[in-house]
């Protein structure tokens, strides 16, 4: 009996590695993330301060993470606002409008899009987008080109295939019956899309957007390369801002002591953000898993 169970135990062991990884990851990040408060005695409320003055040699050292949190959210939201119409439009195109030949081009194109590594997007932003903004939109305040908008545009491109492919799946999952029913009632194709397909796929599209937001919040290098890394509360799309990921990327190798601890706290905040997104995605998907 015990021998018969061996395969089951071995495969279970392999699956449990995932849980072990999560537990370790949560443990390490939470442990290192609270050092700022536990060891260095920085009051928890201080991280909500808008002032980031981590240099222990200067006066008025303050570990305010608000600029990073606000920057992360701001860059993420604008990226989603730019990307969603394009991605959902493209997904609708592939699912509802495209003739076969066009679908045969669009689908592999999406896979190529997914495959392009994030440093490449960052490099592209750095060599093309940033100079472009500086030269052509300098009059709008893009003094250097490094800006909130640059970060969001690069991210918009990066999350486009994510949102597209998940919403495409949601559209395709709407039964063909529904479309024929609408068309047979004498509606146009757009009316069928607008009043039948979109409502039926709404949760799926929402999930797709949340996946896109998740990726946008967590992307580090591409954003860091174009955003300008200024620890200020974002007020203008044309000005440099920063994000949690960028700051960790930049400072991690040099920062020591309390400064370093603050970076781990940023990691913890990122972890909490992604946890929130996971729960949101679960909540959105609850209807489907029950069905």
């Amino acid at each position: 009996m015990a021998r018969l169970d061996a395969p089951r135990r071995i495969t279970l062991g392999a699956a449990l590695v995932v849980i072990a990884a999560v537990v370790l990851l949560l443990g390490f990040i939470v442990w290192r993330g609270v050092q700022l408060f536990v060891v260095s005695g920085v009051p928890v409320t201080q991280i909500l301060s808008p002032t980031w003055q981590p240099d222990p040699l200067s006066e008025g050292t303050t570990y305010g993470l608000l600029p990073f949190i606000a920057g992360t959210l701001a860059v993420m939201v604008v990226a989603a606002v730019v990307s969603t119409p394009l991605s959902v439009g493209l997904a609708l195109f592939m699912a509802e409008v495209a003739p076969t030949w066009a679908r045969r081009i669009a689908q592999p194109a999406m896979e190529v899009f997914v495959g392009i590594p994030s440093v490449v997007y960052g490099w592209l932003g750095l060599t093309i987008l940033v100079p472009f903004l500086r030269v052509h939109f300098g009059w709008l305040g893009f003094a250097t080109g490094f800006s909130w908008l640059a970060g969001s545009l690069v991210l918009a491109l990066m999350i486009l295939p994510t949102i597209t492919s998940i919403s495409y799946d949601a559209f395709v999952a709407v039964p063909a019956d529904m479309r024929s029913a609408s068309l047979a009632l004498g509606t146009t194709r757009w009316q069928a899309i607008r009043h039948v397909v979109l409502p039926a796929a709404a949760t799926g599209v929402a999930t797709a957007i949340v996946f896109g937001l998740t990726r946008a919040a967590g992307e580090a290098l591409a954003v860091q390369m174009v955003i300008g890394n200024a620890p200020v509360i974002p007020t203008s799309l044309a000005r440099p801002v920063t994000t949690l990921t960028s700051q960790i990327t930049l400072d991690m190798s040099d920062a020591t002591g309390t400064w370093n601890e603050a970076l781990w706290t940023m990691g913890l905040v990122l972890l909490l953000i992604s946890l929130a997104f996971v729960l949101l995605i679960r909540w959105l998907g609850r209807g489907r898993s029950q069905a």
Binding site: A21, L25, R32, G218, A220, G267, L271, S274, V278
Partner: peptide, 17 residues
């Protein structure tokens, strides 16, 4: 849940870990 969580944790955080 672990699968979903790791898939959405930013890679920089995984790097920190």
């Amino acid at each position: 849940f672990s699968q979903e969580l790791i898939s959405s944790v930013p890679s920089i955080v995984v790097g920190l870990f």
